[in-house]
């Protein structure tokens, strides 16, 4: 399985991350924006896993027992993302109840 070099995984991770970041900037529906943020978090998860799996990576010479922390981090990130989904959808629901639509461009009652 180590035939695939680490850099490929890092590249895919960065590609996913940039795709998500661009999506956050260009999309106007908060649900889609939020999906893009989830994509960014998944990209980070892939990066963490790749680093942990390829230990010792070509980047660091010595192998340390702490490499396992990368896999542990992924679990934590997934838990945090789940909590964010719950709160985020709740906020979007609250806005929908108030205005009957959700569009980020129309959320600009404050200026200055």
């Amino acid at each position: 399985m180590n035939d695939v070099p680490l850099l490929v995984y890092l590249g895919i991770g960065l590609f996913m991350f940039v795709t998500g970041a661009v999506g956050v900037v260009v999309r106007r529906n908060p649900v889609v924006v939020f999906m893009c943020i989830e994509l960014m978090l998944n990209a980070v998860n892939l990066t963490f896993l790749a680093f942990a799996r390829y230990a010792p990576s070509p980047l660091v010479a010595d192998k340390q027992p702490t490499w396992m922390a990368g896999q542990m981090a992924v679990i934590f990130v997934m838990a945090v993302a789940a909590a964010e989904v719950a709160v985020g959808l709740g906020i979007i629901m609250a806005i929908f109840r108030l205005k009957n639509k959700v569009d980020l461009d129309e959320l600009s009652s404050m200026r200055g």
């Binding site: 991350f17 980070v44 990066t47 010792p56 660091v60 990368g70 981090a73």
Partner: peptide, 21 residues
């Protein structure tokens, strides 16, 4: 959450180069 995704990617790369969190 957008900003914490960037922060997290930063942590991942620091982890990749140092081998520890």
């Amino acid at each position: 959450s957008f900003a914490s995704a960037w922060l997290l990617l930063g942590i991942a790369y620091i982890f990749g180069t140092t081998g520890t969190l």
